[in-house]
């Protein structure tokens, strides 16, 4: 119980810090730091999505960049058509309303996750890792060579999309929006983990045969989790495209999938706030070390190697102890 309480306090500190740092930056007039915090919040959201599949369900998806990219392209393509006043397809027009874009992004990435999941979950272990990678690579090469939406040059979003009551061009307001969505996603994750569904999912991860013996269908439960996971990551992709006002195949690159896994591992697999802490560490590392040396990835690699070899519970595990996740 001590560990659980310690983890609860740690979670509160992490979330408050993510709020306090940009608030300080707002007072100090440092819009760059606010944008960095927004990036942390959005990457964390993407990783919360992956954490459902990977942390709770034990499904090592090496292709979540696919959903991230689908979300990004939803935002890019809809905004592109809204900007140029041309229909997307079948007479449907584009939009610059984030709520609509988010709904489309989640629906589409959920749909793709359902297809990919249904096919991939026939395999397990290394085969599952590789087939999810293969599907993401398909998406990557498709966007790379499909000329209609910029191909390898990517697709710019000239005017940031709108959200009712929010001026999305102001860094602080955009941060609050991303932070709010992240909080909702964290609550969804916590509720999911505490629910019967979450218990079934974790039971399947620990022992699929026993779970099946007590009447849980592993395939259906895992697929549902995989779809929810893809939807959240897709939502994050749409928001990331709006933050950087740019969508490109790089969002679907396999290194992006790797980065999402790295974020979760740095934080601690299956932990509620692992994505937030992991994303903060990654972005912080990139900004701090990237300023000092162009070889910052060397140091990131060494830190990551250290965490994998010697600190298997991630940073949260180091501080809050090994227990605390199902």
């Amino acid at each position: 119980m001590v560990e659980a309480r310690r983890e609860f306090i740690l979670n509160a500190v992490i979330v408050l810090a993510l709020f306090a740092v940009p608030l300080w930056a707002l007072m100090a007039g440092e819009p760059f730091i606010i944008s960095l915090a927004t990036r942390v919040a959005i990457l964390a959201l993407a990783a919360v999505g992956l954490n459902i599949a990977l942390g709770l369900g034990g499904m090592v998806s090496f292709g979540h960049a696919l959903y991230f990219g689908i979300g990004g392209y939803c935002a890019g393509i809809l905004a592109h058509h809204a900007f140029s006043g041309t229909p997307v397809a079948f007479g449907l027009s584009g939009t610059n309303q984030m709520l609509v874009i988010w709904a489309v992004a989640m629906a589409l990435s959920g749909l793709v996750a359902a297809v990919v999941g249904a096919l991939s979950l026939r395999t397990s272990g290394i085969f599952f890792i590789m087939i999810t990678l293969a599907f993401a690579q398909m998406g990557f090469f498709f966007t790379l060579s499909w000329p209609a939406y910029g191909g390898e040059d990517g697709l710019p979003i000239f005017v940031r999309n709108q959200f009712p009551g929010v001026n999305t061009m102001r860094p602080w307001e955009l941060f609050l929006l991303a932070f709010g969505v992240l909080l909702v996603a964290l609550v969804v994750f916590a509720m999911l983990r505490a629910s019967r569904f979450g218990a079934a999912l974790m039971a399947i991860r620990q022992n699929p045969d026993r779970a099946a013996a007590v009447g849980i269908s592993p395939f259906g439960v895992k697929l549902t989790a995989f779809v929810i996971s893809g939807m959240l990551t897709g939502l994050a992709g749409a928001m990331m495209a709006d933050l950087s006002r740019f969508t490109s195949p790089a969002m679907m690159a396999w290194t992006m999938s790797g980065e999402l896994i790295v974020i979760i591992i740095l934080g601690g697999v299956g932990r509620l706030c692992a994505p937030v802490l992991g994303a903060a560490i990654l972005v912080g590392f990139e900004t701090l070390f990237g300023g000092w040396t162009e070889h910052w990835q060397l140091w990131l690699g060494l830190v990551l190697l250290g965490v994998v070899l010697f600190a298997r519970g991630g940073v949260i595990g180091l501080i809050a102890g090994r227990e605390g996740h199902g």
Partner: peptide
Amino acid sequence: DHLDQVLATFALILILSEGVRL
């Protein structure tokens, strides 16, 4: 498990790529 292997060798890619660049 495979997850640890993927991550550790992903870290090795970062280290070796930067090492070669150095």
